[in-house]
Design a protein around this nucleic acid. Structure first.
Length: 270
DNA sequence: TCAAGATGATCAG
DNA sequence: TGATCCTCTTGAT
């Protein structure tokens, strides 16, 4: 589930199991052999996330930059590593645990300057206390693009992916095709603080649960259902199913190559 | 056994 | 806007 909260949790887990110790770094698949060799045997100082990016710093300077993309995964396990199975791009082995990276869009070695360039490109990250939602709103409010597209633009908001986009817009009763310029400051602030809450909850639990207590299955007299991504949601990947709130059918369409989900009754166009 | 689809981003036209 | 890359899972045949 590579949205911002996932990367945040991965960074925390890496720090808990690998920080401040020498680690063995390899690339069983072979596509990151040079990068792995450059940090192999060195002390992993700290891992940190920003939006959907993960940075793993080593004591002699280099930083491993990872972006999971659509299908990437970093599996962290405690215990002795078994022989690598599948296309393991990067394997980190510590004293008590190991981490296998597969399918990432980006796995590269960078320096501090390159990391600064990446960070400078990113918009406000709801998981960071120093994030500036006003800056994001300035971008949104001057754009005629659909708010559903703007929320996924990492230079506007960092870390928000398709699930948080769909769910936050539903909870704000905002149609995803509403032009950014038509989103009021008050509405934006509600949306932003809701994203902060939802993503923070995702960090704590590892799940994306967005359904409010009054709409939960027990309260609505329907069976509980957990989506593949591990939580209960209002609209994401529920096209053709009844809305938890109004009973109308959830709709879907492509917006800029990504699946959009919304309830046409609860999220009317203005 | 094979094709399609997926929580992302970039590049060419 | 469409094509492309990355890997794995699921469902159809």
């Amino acid at each position: 589930m590579p949205e911002g909260h996932t990367l945040y949790r991965l960074a925390s887990d890496l720090n808990a199991l690998f920080a401040c110790q020498p680690v063995e770094v390899t690339s069983p698949q072979g596509r990151f052999s040079d990068g792995a060799a450059a940090v192999d045997g060195h002390v992993l100082e700290v891992a940190e996330s920003a939006g959907k990016h993960l940075f793993i710093r080593f004591d002699h300077g280099p930083i491993v930059h990872v972006h999971l993309g659509l299908i990437g995964a970093l599996a962290i396990q405690e215990g002795v590593p078994p022989p690598a199975v599948g296309a393991v791009r990067l394997r980190i082995v510590g004293r008590t645990a190991y981490a296998d990276l597969r399918g990432a869009t980006t796995c590269e070695l960078i320096d501090a300057d390159q990391m600064a360039v990446i960070l400078a490109r990113l918009g406000a990250d709801p998981l960071r206390p120093d994030a500036d939602p006003d800056k994001a709103y300035a971008r949104i409010h001057k754009s005629t693009k659909a708010v559903g597209a703007l929320l996924m633009d990492q230079s506007v908001l960092a870390g928000v992916g398709n699930i948080f986009r769909a769910e936050a817009l539903f909870r704000a009763r905002l149609h995803p095709l509403t032009p950014g310029v038509k989103v009021s400051k008050r509405r934006w602030e509600r949306l932003w603080f809701d994203l902060v809450d939802l993503m923070d909850y995702g960090v704590q639990t590892g799940r994306i649960d967005t359904v409010r207590p009054e709409h939960e299955p027990e309260a609505m007299g329907r069976p509980a259902r957990i989506d593949d991504h591990g939580g209960e949601v209002y609209v994401y990947r529920r096209a053709g199913q009844p809305c938890h709130v109004c009973g109308g059918l959830i709709r879907t369409r492509l917006l800029e190559g990504r699946n959009l989900f919304w309830c046409p009754t609860c999220q009317r166009r203005r």
